[in-house]
Design a protein around this nucleic acid. Sequence first.
DNA 1: GTATAACCGAGACGGTACGTCCCGTCTTACA
DNA 2: TGTAAGACGGGACGTACCGTCTCGGTTATAC
Lengths: 174, 174, 174, 174
Amino acid sequence: MLEELGYKRLSIEAIAARAGVGKQTIYRWWKGKGLLVIEAFAHATSARATELPTADSGSVAEDLRRLLLSVFDRNAHYDRGAAPATKSMMAEAQLDREFLATFRELVQSWHGLFLRVLERGKERGELRPDADSAALVDLLMGATWYRVLLEHAPLDKAYADTIIRTVLEGNRPD
Amino acid sequence: MLEELGYKRLSIEAIAARAGVGKQTIYRWWKGKGLLVIEAFAHATSARATELPTADSGSVAEDLRRLLLSVFDRNAHYDRGAAPATKSMMAEAQLDREFLATFRELVQSWHGLFLRVLERGKERGELRPDADSAALVDLLMGATWYRVLLEHAPLDKAYADTIIRTVLEGNRPD
Amino acid sequence: MLEELGYKRLSIEAIAARAGVGKQTIYRWWKGKGLLVIEAFAHATSARATELPTADSGSVAEDLRRLLLSVFDRNAHYDRGAAPATKSMMAEAQLDREFLATFRELVQSWHGLFLRVLERGKERGELRPDADSAALVDLLMGATWYRVLLEHAPLDKAYADTIIRTVLEGNRPD
Amino acid sequence: MLEELGYKRLSIEAIAARAGVGKQTIYRWWKGKGLLVIEAFAHATSARATELPTADSGSVAEDLRRLLLSVFDRNAHYDRGAAPATKSMMAEAQLDREFLATFRELVQSWHGLFLRVLERGKERGELRPDADSAALVDLLMGATWYRVLLEHAPLDKAYADTIIRTVLEGNRPD
DNA sequence: GTATAACCGAGACGGTACGTCCCGTCTTACA
DNA sequence: TGTAAGACGGGACGTACCGTCTCGGTTATAC
């Protein structure tokens, strides 16, 4: 229904009707449209067994590339698949502080994957040991989200390369 | 009123009442809440004469630093000043495609400033000539927006340093 | 719609839909279902020009008889015409004190007609001068309403005769 | 709870909660709010051993007076005691035909007492033998209910006297 | 200096959705 | 096995705003 109507026109009334369910039942389980969508999103992504690739390939560059391209893949089409949902959630997060807290947890769970890769890189001496990994993750993710949100340029391999190249070269040891 | 109520609870009805104006008059001038806010935002930022620093200091690093810190300054407090407004607009942009187009123009007008600085850097040989400047701007802005939107970490000098350092070191010539 | 559905199943939602009107518009004009019905009732009875007979025939008995039979006529069929509406209003009056006040005014406007007839009777010496006219009206109306409300016996001429006979004979001068 | 909340706001949900009982259990015993209240009313009036006075004093006037004043007593205060309950039941009877049937039986059980008194009066020659006793009971009860329902005048001794006087004088033999 | 038009506040209107209450039925988990 | 607890599908409530639409009562202009 999200893809069909868009988040704004998606009403709890309509969800209930489509589900053949009383509105109260929905309010019993979720506090609002946002939290319902977040859960539906989590369910959909986990159900489709589309886990992000976490295997250790031996090189930060390769690990990061795999991870980032996987994220790019899911969000490359701004108007279908995961992107509309994540965009909607980011919007709701700006409109409802309570929702922001929940959403942040979801988003930060993704950070973990990136953090681990970067930390492995440090251990292997591929990255400066004093680099601020958390900040680097924000760079990686921020660059990605920015294009998804504004839709002013595509999430393509060239962009991924630029991002990864910049982050790694910019934090090479000495 | 935006700071007071938040974008979600800010209704055109309330704006009209507060302004001592008929609703029709508002609809005559703006097509929706989003476009009204975008204009109010533009008015407020220009009125306060808080233009971004564009002077050429002679070094990319310094120019970038000044520019980025100026942006950081305006948005450092996530719950007052410019941040709530920009966050609201980013939200609206996700919910209304027509608004997205308008908002994108506003945002991209800011890109110009960063692009010019990077291009000057290329000319001076401070940056690789084949670096994708547009992508680098997205890196800079994306990293900034990301923390503003998620509010999971502060927009502080350390973060600015990491961003600039990474972008510049990551795109040094040869 | 009242006759069709009955007062209980008559919802403001349905009235609005049938009238092709927003619910708010109804709430703008009437405070509740009861007050709307009371107004519809007043409108219907006045529109149909079914005024009660108030002419002076020269005898209390005859005046009273005409008046009472006219009331009987309108309410003889407990399940159509005026009776369902008046019954509904009497019900609402028991459930909502504010409505009771309004309803009482309507009902007491009818008392006036009976009171005038009785007072004429006193003047002509057909009734004891110290009879409590108001109480006698309550007797006349109470007896009528009682059968309408309980529907345990018909509003027929015999009952009208008994009522009038009792009230007049019971209050003959000396 | 009836006195506390009024019939309208009295919900089965609330009754169950207050009673520490499942809703289902209530529906197992009573078909609706009305029937539950009618039973509670019957229980309350019988428990308080406030039976109506049926003894034969030797005079219709006296018997009637005792009986009527007893009814008046219970309902003199329109907002507490028996009156709110009877008013509620009369309301429900107008809204639900099935309930009306049950309620009518309860009400008519009271008629029996009045009928017996009137019949005794006929036997003793205190009343015209061809008087319609049932109609007279409706006069007595109707006059009483009317004031209880509209609350436009008190149930006082003067009113009782007028009622009884009218009914007896109006149906004296010859 | 007055008639006339443009404007605008106020807010009613048809409408959608909200979040809540309660209905009467169904399910669960404990005693 | 029965029952409290309460979830469920459902209907209606009364409210908030939406974007559109009349209204009068000013101004401001043209005659």
